[in-house]
Design a protein around this nucleic acid. Structure first.
Length: 180
DNA sequence: TTAGTGATATCC
DNA sequence: GATATCACTAAA
């Protein structure tokens, strides 16, 4: 028994720098337990780090607003926001309180695209602000350690250099789709 | 390539 | 109150 022990990631895991947490989350399993007890799981295949007010691609760059105030909370909080009026994008807040940074969950092994990932897990804005270490939403580490690839972030054309070129996108190297 | 979608931020 | 913007997806 316990051939492959599964452990839940605790708050301390997320209270580190987003550049440490983002690659560490690749290969982990995000679990969402629905009110009826159903558990939806998705292994994370791609993340991006958004780090601080200096990062022009980070929502925190423009200043604190009701929408992005979640970024200033301490690590271990889920930040869900609606993009383009259609898609809920899920982020996990990392680092200490008052350090606005987070990790965007861009894709799962079976769900390419951040909007599709949240749809598959049935995550929307009603989950905003939940703890990622609670009994509704949590991460599991089942021992998988996929190779990690890095790449520049995408979809942030409004940000200037050097942020546009920062290799803060992390992908699992064993996903069999042509990630490019 | 373009359209669609709705909340948020910014301007008056 | 009005307009511009957006870390996307689907359809063509």
């Amino acid at each position: 028994m316990n051939g492959s022990p599964v452990r839940r990631l605790d708050a301390a895991f997320f209270q580190r720098d987003c550049l440490t947490v983002a690659p560490a989350l690749v290969g982990k399993v995000l679990v969402h337990r629905l009110p009826d007890g159903t558990e939806l799981r998705e292994r994370i295949a791609e993340t991006e780090a958004y780090r601080g007010t200096e990062d022009e691609a980070c929502h925190a760059h423009k200043g604190r607003t009701p929408r992005n105030s979640m970024l200033w909370r301490e690590g271990g909080t889920v930040y869900v926001y609606l993009c383009y009026g259609i898609h809920s994008l899920a982020n996990v807040i990392t680092g200490a309180a008052e350090a606005p940074q987070g990790v965007l969950l861009r894709a799962g092994y079976t769900t390419p695209g951040p909007g599709r990932l949240t749809k598959a897990l049935q995550i929307d804005r009603t989950q905003n602000g939940l703890a990622i270490t609670g009994d509704v939403l949590w991460f599991e580490d089942d021992g998988a350690r996929p190779p990690i690839l890095t790449a520049p972030r995408v979809g942030i054309g409004y940000a200037g250099e050097p942020w546009l070129s920062m290799p803060w996108r992390f992908l699992a190297g064993d996903v069999s789709s042509s990630n490019k």
